[in-house]
Write a protein that binds this DNA or RNA. Structure first.
Lengths: 130, 130
DNA sequence: GATGGTGCGTTACAGTATAACATGCCTTCA
DNA sequence: TGAAGGCATGTTATACTGTAACGCACCATC
């Protein structure tokens, strides 16, 4: 029998809040935005985030302690981001050559890779990447 | 006139504690280990860590909220790590091709790169990377 | 109608990081 | 000599991030 787990109103509230902004949001920012919708405490937010991440619908940005919606579901744990420290926006990086290079390194080093955290900080095209 | 900033006993205490272990340490683990040496509160540890990082003598592992000594000083912000989720060890990755690929992506995307956070989670050679 | 799985609300707490202010030690330079 | 400023530190308090542990409700199954 496959999983019994379902999508719930809380999951969708959090997901919708993430999608509404271009910037990653912290769990507490999400909480503030959803209090009016009945979300009252951190565990609710964290539980929904955990679920969205499991399901590939959101990602955690480790270097910001923040979360972002993932529109295009992807394959492995290969989620890579560019983060603009000026405007706060973050975008998913899709670069197969880069993914391949990471996998190649792991293979050469006999490292059994589970998850790659790749987050590039700087300034986006609009903010000064002239 | 160059910087007046000096290395102080606190910096060296923290640096020595980091070097004494193979595993990354959190700020509070460092604090516990250094209480007997007179370090009494978080700000002291965080200030020393900030300085060590500025000076290229330590790195922060974003996905662990932990810190590790950097023996070989390096060039840019290119610090990349493999992290074993079994034994807790972390090792610096030196892979020029990978660094180049990251820089290449940034260039193509007109992204002005300041700092790359690259942390690979999995199992090291000893722990199961058979 | 018992049982068990899953999600939720709530409280309390653990873990991570910094603000703000006071003190002391230098160096500089009048 | 001594006033002034920079830097590191000590101390207290607080902010931010994340989880444990409990109890309840719902729903499916048998």
């Amino acid at each position: 029998m496959p999983s019994k787990r379902m999508r719930t109103p809380n999951h969708e509230l959090v997901f919708a809040a993430l999608r509404k902004t271009a910037k990653p949001l912290t769990a507490y920012e999400l909480l503030d935005r959803l209090r009016s919708r009945g979300v009252s405490a951190p565990p609710t937010v964290y539980r929904a985030l955990g679920r969205l991440i499991e399901d590939g619908r959101a990602h955690r940005l480790e270097s910001l302690n923040a979360f972002i919606a993932c529109t295009r579901p992807h394959h492995g744990a290969e989620a890579m981001f560019s983060i603009c420290d000026d405007c706060g926006s973050a975008e998913e990086i899709l670069d197969p050559a880069l993914s391949k290079r990471v996998a190649g390194w792991a293979h050469n080093a006999c490292f059994e890779l589970d998850r790659a955290v790749l987050e590039l900080h700087g300034r986006c095209r609009d903010c000064g990447g002239a």
